[in-house]
Structure formats: structure tokens, C-alpha cells
């Protein structure tokens, strides 16, 4: 495993921890999109179907369990927790799951490396992960005051994607036969979706003002 891949996994882990920290300690999910969180839960469910059948490493299995567990835990907190759910911004979080899930599933049926069930689900998870952040970005745009933890959550997620691209470039040059068009293109699309957010995030940090995305 190279340093980019490891750092990417760690920033991904950080993003989840920041979000859980916010929800668990402040008992608030203000500014967090339930739609995005539900899509991530679906992404991990579809991608890690092989968790029991295909052992790669202890690291791999533990990380998969963490991402699966935390994504469902976050959804549970927002939907069911007596206090947390009160802060959920239902009026502004209006993105429809199906508009993202259905096209991704159809695309996975059409464009995949092998048309086996697990392979299609894996491809579906890549396509869906690429666009799963959209409801969250829309919600941020509609939110006047983005708190620090929410901003950091999205920042860490974006950093994770950027580091994965470095990882692919590194692996392409160091490993024989490492060519994965589907992973690369969906990963690139996903990273580009953060470009706008990053621009405003760094500006707010540089000028030391509160983060706000233009409508």
C-alpha cells in the first residue's frame, strides 16, 4: 500500500469521525444531508458484498466494517435519535434518491468490466459514490451559516478523493496491468464535484471569514 492510498483512507476515516463527533457530542446534525448519508450507506452495502467471501487483509476488512457501521449509525442518528433528529434540516434537504440511484444502476448494467452480480453491484457503488455528495453540496449552498465541523467533514471527504487519484497515478506507474477506467473516470468526476467547494473553503480559510457558498 502506498502513502497516497493510506492517507486517502485516513482522511476518509477522519471525515466520518468528524461527522460522528459533531452528531454525538453536540447532538446536532444541522447542515448534514440525510440523503447523502443514506446514499453512502447504500454505496458501502453494494461495494462490500464480498466482505465475508473475499479476504484481502485485516486492514481491509476492519476498514470496510468501520465504513459500513458508521454510515448506518449516522443514518440511524439522524432518523431515529430523539434529540439529534430535531436538528435535521428536512425543508432544505429535498434531493430525490431515485434521481441518482436509478441512472447509476442502469449505467452499471450497461458499462462494467464483467457482467456478474457482484461486479455490477461493485460498479454501481462506484458510480453512486461519485454523485452521492450532491445532496450534501446542495444543502450547503442553501445553508446560510455552515459550521466548522460540517465544513471540515466535506473538506476531508474531498481530500480523500484527491489522494485516491494520486494513489491511482502512483499505482499505474509502479504496478503492471494496473488499468481501471471505470474506477478512474467515476473517481475523477467525484473529485471535480468538490472543486467549487474547495475554492470557497480555501478562500474562507485564507481570509479568515465564515464559510458560505454562493447560491
Amino acid at each position: 500500500m502506498n502513502i497516497f492510498r493510506f492517507s486517502g483512507d485516513m482522511t476518509h476515516l477522519m471525515s466520518v469521525l468528524v461527522l460522528l463527533l459533531k452528531i454525538h457530542t453536540i447532538k446536532s446534525c444541522a447542515g448534514i444531508s440525510l440523503k447523502t448519508q443514506e446514499l453512502y450507506a447504500l454505496v458501502f452495502l453494494a461495494r462490500y458484498l464480498d466482505i465475508v467471501t473475499n479476504f484481502i487483509s485485516l486492514y481491509n476488512t476492519i476498514m470496510k466494517l468501520i465504513f459500513l457501521g458508521s454510515s448506518f449509525m449516522i443514518v440511524w442518528y439522524i432518523r431515529r435519535h430523539r434529540i439529534v433528529r430535531r436538528s435535521y434540516d428536512k425543508e432544505h434537504d429535498t434531493f430525490r434518491h431515485l434521481f441518482l440511484v436509478l441512472p447509476c444502476f442502469i449505467l452499471a448494467l450497461l458499462i462494467n468490466e464483467r457482467s456478474a452480480f457482484k461486479e455490477i453491484m461493485w460498479t454501481f457503488s462506484l458510480y453512486l459514490e461519485a454523485v452521492a455528495i450532491l445532496p450534501q453540496l446542495v444543502l450547503l449552498q442553501r445553508t446560510k451559516n455552515i459550521d466548522n465541523l460540517t465544513g471540515q467533514y466535506v473538506f476531508f471527504l474531498g481530500a480523500y478523493r484527491a489522494l485516491y487519484i494520486c494513489n491511482w497515478i502512483y499505482r499505474y506507474f509502479t504496478e503492471p496491468h494496473y488499468v481501471h477506467w471505470i474506477t478512474w473516470i467515476s473517481g475523477l468526476v467525484q473529485t471535480l464535484l468538490y472543486a467549487d467547494f474547495f475554492y470557497y473553503y480555501f478562500n474562507s480559510w485564507k481570509n479568515n471569514v465564515k464559510l458560505q457558498l454562493p447560491a
Binding site: M1, H12, I56, S57, N60, Y164, N167, H177, H180
Partner: peptide, 10 residues
């Protein structure tokens, strides 16, 4: 332990 398919990624 890294498999050929890149499926060792999360």
C-alpha cells in the same frame, strides 16, 4: 496481499 483487480481499494 494486493490483488490484481484493484479491488483491494476501499
Amino acid at each position: 496481499t494486493e490483488d490484481q483487480n484493484g479491488k483491494d481499494e476501499l
